[in-house]
Design a protein around this nucleic acid. Structure first.
Lengths: 241, 241
DNA sequence: GTAGCCTCTTACACTTTCTCACAATCGGTT
DNA sequence: AACCGATTGTGAGAAAGTGTAAGAGGCTAC
C-alpha cells in the first residue's frame, strides 16, 4: 500500500509502518503460505474481485499492478490503494469485499483461500500475528491517505504521492529519482481526491518549476528531491491553517 | 468508530462492517478481557496517549468520549475517529502510537496491557480472530471516512456525519432523530476536512432548509431524515462527476 | 502510413470553500 | 448580575480547485 506520509524516514524508523506498500515481500509465515497459492493471470482492466463479492481468497501480486477502489452510485470513485508486485490484497475483508480490485495491465496474482489461511492460523499463532500486523499497516496507510486527501493542497498531494513512489523504489533497490507510473491520470486523481485536470496541471507546474522532468506522461524524473520533499511535508509556501 | 457510509443498511446487512462505531460492546472474548482491565479517569482535554508514545495498552471507553487525531507540524489536524462508550482504542498500534487520543470531557477508560492481550491470544485463537475482525472494521471505517472527505461536498459530509450519529443512536436504542454532539465544531471540521466556518454555515443551511433543528449548538434534531439521507448519499442536487 | 481512438494537456469562466474580520452566544466566575 | 474567555455564527473578498471545451500526443489497426 502506498503511504503518502510526510516523514521520509517513517519507512525505516518504524518497520511496522510498512512505508510505501503495506505488506511487501513478507519474508515470513504469510509469504510462505502465499507462495504455495495458485497463480492466476488477469488481462488489463479485468477485475480480480468486485464490491460485494464473497471474499474467498487472499492474493499476492506477482507481476503487474492492481488498483483497489470503491464507487458511489453516481460514479464518483475513490481509489484506496495501488498494489505492486509483492503486495497482498484482500486481507481486511470479512465476508464480502468492500471494494473492487482491477488489473491496470496484464497481471499475475497468487491466491490462497481464506478458509485455508484461517485453518493455518488456528495452529500457527505466528501466522496470526503476521496477518494482524499486515492489517495494522493497511490501517496506518489508509489514515495516512486520509490525512493527505483531507488536509493537503493539490500540489502537496501530488508531491506526497511522488515521494511515496520514490521511497518505494528506494526500498526496492530501484532508482529513487526515476518513477514509472503504471496508473492513469484518472487513477491518480481518484486516489488523491482531485480531478484529472488538476493532476495534470500540477504535474505541469512541477515540471516548469524544475522539480520534476516529464518526457512521457508515464515517466517522472525527480530533478529536485529536496523541493519535492518540502512540498510533500507542507513546505514554506503551503497555507498555514 | 464513526462510519460515514452512504448506505444506511450497511450496519445491519454486514454485521462485520460495524457501522457507526467499529467495535462497540463486543459481547465476546475481547469484551471479557477488557472488563478485567484497570479503570482510569481522564479530565477534559487530558490525553490518554500521544503520537509516538509506546503503545502499552488497549483501552475501552466506559464513560465519556475520546477524540483520536493526528497533527502535522504546521498545525493542520486530522481527526480520525470519535470513540464512544463501548469503543476500543489503540488496537492498530504496533510499537508506537501513530495518533493521539484526547478526552473531550471527563472520561473513564478501562485499559488492558498489550502484552497480556498478546499472551492470551497465543492460546485463545478465538480472541485472536476477534482482534483481527475489530481491526478490519477500523480499516473499513477509515476508508469510508476517506471516501467521504475525498469525494463529497461540504453539505454531503456534514449530512453523512449526522446520519452516522443517527444510525449509531438507533443501534444503541436511543432516539435516532435527536443527536447530541459531544465534540466541538473544530473537532467536526478536522474530522470532515473542512473549516470551522464551513461546518457552522452548513449547519445553519440545513436548519434554514428545514432538514434539522438546532436549538443549542450541541443538540441536533433531525426534522427531515429523508432529505438528510439523500444528501448524505449524494442526492439529486449533488454534483455529478 | 494514416485514420481513429484514447489519454493527456491547456485555457478560461465559474463554483466552492477558505480566509479574515467581527458580532453573538454560551458557561463559568467573580 | 455583570464579566470574562472561549466557542459559535455571519458576511465579504480571495484563493483554490472544478467543469467545459478544445487541442496535442501517442498507440493500434487497417
Amino acid at each position: 500500500m502506498l503511504t503518502t506520509a510526510f516523514t521520509v524516514d517513517s519507512d525505516h524508523d518504524h518497520p511496522m509502518t510498512g512505508g510505501g506498500l503495506a505488506h511487501r515481500e513478507p519474508q515470513d509465515a504469510l509469504a510462505e503460505r502465499l507462495a504455495a497459492g495458485v497463480a492466476h493471470t488477469l488481462e488489463a482492466r479485468e477485475h480480480l474481485f468486485c464490491e460485494g463479492d464473497q471474499a474467498t481468497h487472499v492474493y499476492r501480486v506477482e507481476v503487474g499492478h492492481i488498483c483497489i477502489y470503491r464507487m458511489m452510485p453516481d460514479g464518483r470513485r475513490q481509489v484506496v490503494d495501488f498494489a505492486y508486485p509483492g503486495d497482498v490484497i484482500g486481507l481486511g475483508a470479512l465476508g464480502e469485499h468492500a471494494d473492487s480490485a482491477q488489473a491496470m495491465e496484464r497481471t499475475v496474482v497468487r491466491g490462497l483461500p481464506v478458509a485455508t489461511l484461517k485453518d493455518l492460523a488456528r495452529f500457527d499463532s505466528q501466522l496470526g500475528i503476521k496477518l494482524y500486523e499486515a492489517l495494522s499497516r493497511e490501517l496506518l496507510a489508509a489514515r495516512e491517505l486520509l490525512f493527505t486527501v483531507s488536509q493537503r493542497t493539490a500540489a502537496e498531494r501530488v508531491a506526497a504521492f511522488l515521494m511515496a513512489l520514490s521511497r518505494r523504489n528506494e526500498r526496492r533497490g530501484e532508482k529513487p529519482d526515476e518513477i514509472v507510473l503504471p496508473m492513469t491520470r484518472m487513477d491518480i486523481a481518484d486516489f488523491l481526491g482531485l480531478t484529472i485536470e488538476t493532476v495534470s496541471r500540477t504535474f505541469t507546474r512541477l515540471r516548469t518549476d524544475g522539480v520534476i522532468d516529464l518526457e512521457q506522461c508515464i515517466l517522472v524524473t525527480i530533478r529536485n528531491p529536496g523541493a519535492l520533499q518540502a512540498l510533500a511535508e507542507g513546505g514554506p509556501e503551503s497555507r498555514a491553517r
